[in-house]
């Protein structure tokens, strides 16, 4: 196909500004078009590349959409049972204290079935990083209601909207774990705009830097979209997320250097 506005003369290595990192395996990601998982995967791998710690990092993949993360990230990965990633990461970090360990979990994994493991790992103050992708829905299984689903939000198991009288309130697990003395850095970010992506990358970088200090869990929540589960186009879902998710899950640092800032 003819590329009318292409400038092949500019495409030289010294002019290169941005390319997909080689730490991501050169294969198509299994996520839906427009899903935030891909961006978080890439930012995570860029942080490991910049810190040059890819060979010393062990990731724990969850159950959920990102269960195949070990296929995409070209680092050592272990698969945990549903919700048990923080327990497995605890074992890895205690056996190999010099390795960088992270878990990558969704809201169904971390905030529903894995609530106990998450809270206890955070309370013990283990020295690893938890990356929590919150899209307010069980994406992989077909858009069922999750603990993080907003009041009034439609899902396949709450087709008339989440009724808080029957189904209870959304679980703000990030605020919850920020109260625990074992967490050192807790932040909430998003990946829908270039500025937000840069902030998320900075937060991830800080989370991995803090593993050297051994002062407790660094926890990065990323509010993301699930356009398939929300039945929207990717761009619509990003707008919907800004209008509805962000008031309920406000972005920004919640705990920095062990001190609550919000």
């Amino acid at each position: 196909m003819e590329e009318k506005f292409a400038h092949p003369e500019l495409r030289t290595p010294e002019n290169l500004v941005y390319k997909r990192t080689d730490l991501l395996v050169d294969c198509p990601l299994s996520y839906c078009p427009g899903c935030g998982h891909g961006v978080v995967h890439r930012m995570l791998m860029e942080v490991l590349e910049e810190k040059d710690i890819a060979s010393k990092t062990i990731g724990v993949n969850p159950v959920g959409c990102s269960v195949l993360a070990y296929d995409f990230m070209n680092i050592d990965m272990l698969g945990a049972a549903h919700g048990r990633a923080p327990a497995l990461a605890t074992a890895i970090k205690r056996l190999w204290p010099d390795r960088y360990v992270f878990t990558y979990q969704g809201d169904g994994d971390l905030a529903a079935i894995g609530t106990a493991e998450t809270i206890h790992a955070c309370n013990r103050g283990e020295n690893f990083t938890i990356i929590f992708i919150n899209n307010g829905i069980y994406g992989m299984t077909g858009g069922q209601m999750a603990p993080t689903t907003l009041p009034g939000m439609r899902s396949s198991t709450s087709p008339y909207g989440r009724d808080i009288d029957i189904m209870g309130h959304p679980l703000k697990i990030t605020e919850l774990i920020a109260q625990l003395p074992g967490t050192y850095y807790v932040t909430r970010q998003s990946v829908q705009t270039p500025a937000a992506v840069r902030k998320t990358k900075k937060a991830l970088r800080k989370a991995f830097d803090l593993q050297d200090e051994k002062k407790g869990i660094s926890f990065v929540e990323v509010v993301s979209n699930c356009n398939s589960g929300w039945k929207m186009t990717p761009v619509q879902s990003n707008t919907w997320m800004e209008e509805n998710m962000f008031p309920a899950y406000p972005l920004g640092d919640i705990k920095v250097n062990g001190e609550l800032v919000k």
Binding site: L10, R11, V17, K19, L24, H37, G38, V39, T193, P194
Partner: peptide, 23 residues
């Protein structure tokens, strides 16, 4: 031809399909 190589598109691309050059 208005592209300045700001790499915004590449940053938000979920699949990382965009490579950016600037000169």
């Amino acid at each position: 031809d208005d592209c300045t190589g700001c790499s915004n598109c590449a940053l938000v691309c979920p699949d990382g399909v965009i490579t950016v050059y600037r000169a």
